[in-house]
């Protein structure tokens, strides 16, 4: 069974918010689903509906700190807690590709699903008064009129550092599954058993752990690696020639 999802690589995310703006641009332009309302966009307290936000965390204590940019959108859980609580059936998880969607024509805006999401992935649209969330650009990824390489979520195409990847996490041979396996992909808040489909790749530093004893060869009968002192007088040809 297919489970489409996003992989967010925190190692390369620079927090530019291109995914946020491209998401808003694509998803607010739909004639059928309606706009994603903005309230007071240029005023004092701007507020609006977003499917995706980039948050920033400071890890560590000064001066040993590291800034982590953290894009957050709906994780399309395999056990979505927001779906069974919906009283109208407006929230549902698609059988064919595992995308969790909201039917805007059925939603009554009771907000119960947002209470049942530990990640805060759902936002009530202030104008339409219905619950909105990431759709994985379901209206793009199956659009035959687009060239195949463009059939991806808007945020994935916009990311300048390739920090966002899209694919089927149930297919063990897919690029995203390989990344999760090989680069230490993890899920958010695993303690709730929601099994998020989106995975995050951690910060990765290239370090080699070398033990002291590995610097000395144990089986070294000629003791060739012993450092010679400058004042030593028994200079031999071995000191100059690599045989």
């Amino acid at each position: 069974m297919t489970q489409l999802a996003l992989i967010i690589d925190l190692n390369v995310c620079v927090g530019c918010s291109a995914c946020v703006t491209s998401c808003k641009e694509w998803n607010t332009s739909s004639e059928i689903a309606g706009v994603m309302a903005d309230k007071n966009p240029y005023g004092k307290d701007p507020s609006g509906t977003f499917f995706n936000r980039v948050q920033t965390f400071e890890v560590g204590q000064y001066p040993n700190t590291e800034i982590v940019h953290f894009p957050k959108s709906c994780l399309h859980c395999e056990e979505p807690p927001c779906v069974p609580v919906c009283p109208t059936g407006a929230s549902y998880k698609r059988e064919e590709d595992g995308i969790v969607l909201v039917d805007y024509d059925k939603c009554i805006g009771c907000k119960y699903c947002s209470w049942s999401c530990p990640y805060g992935a759902r936002e009530l649209d202030e104008k339409q008064k219905v619950m909105k969330k990431c759709t994985l650009c379901v209206d793009r990824i199956y659009d035959d009129s687009l060239p195949e390489e463009r059939r991806q979520p808007s945020c994935v195409l916009a990311c300048p550092t390739n920090a966002r990847l899209f694919g089927d996490v149930h297919d063990p041979d897919s690029h995203v599954s390989q990344l999760i396996r090989e680069e230490g992909g993890y899920q958010l808040m695993p303690e709730w058993g929601t099994k998020p489909s989106n995975h995050y790749l951690p910060r990765r530093k290239i370090k080699i752990s070398v033990r002291e004893d590995e610097l000395q060869r144990v089986d070294n009968p000629l003791k060739k690696e012993v450092r010679r002192k400058v004042s030593e007088d028994d200079v031999s040809l071995d000191d100059f020639v690599a045989w």
Partner: peptide, 15 residues
Amino acid sequence: MIRQTSQGAMGGSFN
């Protein structure tokens, strides 16, 4: 030690 410096919105949000 994890401290949030930005929550992704300047004003407020539904959240």
